[in-house]
């Protein structure tokens, strides 16, 4: 049996190691690290690839969410070592969803835990004992910027509207004579599922929940606050599963881009259902 003596513990706390949990806590952080890293690597590759983002064969109209809206010009950047380079338009688009997810309250929890180990899991000791008093949370740069999450939300709403338009387009097929008609391919379904999940994620956002009604203290005071209470209730209902929407919408947007890349590069064929 272990015996313990007081040594470095502050304020007369129990002279025990901070944690004695069995090793069951690391699964979630590990999974988060693996999936987020894979997603990061894939997205970076696709953003720079600047190819296979539009599929128009057989009259289809699939535009990858990573490259939407189609920017008319490929802006160039003056890079320190490489000189003037054309940069894939995806870079300019992806900063917005990236900022949205990076500052999202759920993703913050996920990466503070799994990447920063602040803390790695509940009641599991943080490893860097020497840095303990230096912790500043979200009070100092850069994490103080998390307070501007609402602006990333505004941008995300614009993106969601654009992606809804792309989804409608994915159901409109171009005939050989140039006419447009309704049709469904497997890709159209992929687009539809993706935009529904992205909308659920976006409109279950905590900043939105605050904006739409959470900021009021008195709901019964006027008809405006009364109706905002109704919307706030619905957003709260969605918000309850915000973490779930965060994960599934990330996987769906990933899959949608992969699907477009795969059909555009000829890896496999899109099947027309209707």
């Amino acid at each position: 049996m272990a015996s313990y003596s007081a040594n470095s513990r502050e304020e007369g706390r129990a002279p025990l190691p901070m944690e004695n949990r069995e090793l069951d806590w690391w699964l979630m952080p590990l999974l988060t690290v693996v999936v987020l890293t894979l997603f990061g690597v894939y997205t970076t590759f696709r953003a720079f690839e600047n190819n296979y983002y539009l599929y128009t064969k057989n009259g289809a109209n699939y535009l990858s969410p990573f490259y939407s809206p189609l920017l008319p010009i490929a802006w160039s950047l003056h890079l320190p070592l490489f000189g003037l380079k054309m940069v894939s338009p995806a870079i300019y688009i992806l900063i917005f969803p990236l900022a949205f997810r990076l500052t999202c309250y759920y993703y913050r929890k996920a990466y503070y835990r799994s990447f920063f180990w602040d803390p790695p899991a509940c009641a599991v000791a943080e490893p860097r004992a020497d840095a303990r008093m230096k912790y500043t949370g979200e009070r100092k740069f850069p994490f103080i910027l998390q307070n501007l999450h609402r602006y990333a939300f505004y941008a995300a709403v614009v993106i969601v509207i654009i992606l809804w338009k792309d989804t409608v387009d994915a159901f409109i097929w171009t005939g050989p004579d140039g006419s447009h008609h309704f049709g469904i391919g497997v890709g159209s379904i992929v687009f539809l599922v993706n935009i529904i999940l992205l909308s659920l994620y976006t409109f279950s956002c905590h900043s939105w929940r605050h904006l739409i009604g959470g900021k009021h203290n008195c709901y019964s005071c006027s008809c405006v606050t009364r109706s905002s209470y109704g919307i706030w209730k619905k957003v709260s209902f969605l918000n309850h599963n915000h973490a779930l929407w965060a994960w599934v919408s990330m996987l769906s947007v990933w899959f949608t881009d992969f699907y477009v890349m795969a059909v555009a590069s000829g890896m496999f064929k899109d099947i027309r259902i209707l």
Binding site: Y112, A123, E138
Partner: peptide
């Protein structure tokens, strides 16, 4: 009160026996 110290990692919510959604 130092609300900025909280990094919303939600352990409080996980352990609350009254199931209060402290963070959300």
């Amino acid at each position: 009160g130092g609300i900025g110290y909280c990094n919303i990692t939600k352990c409080c919510e996980e352990v609350c026996p009254e199931h209060i959604h402290l963070t959300d």
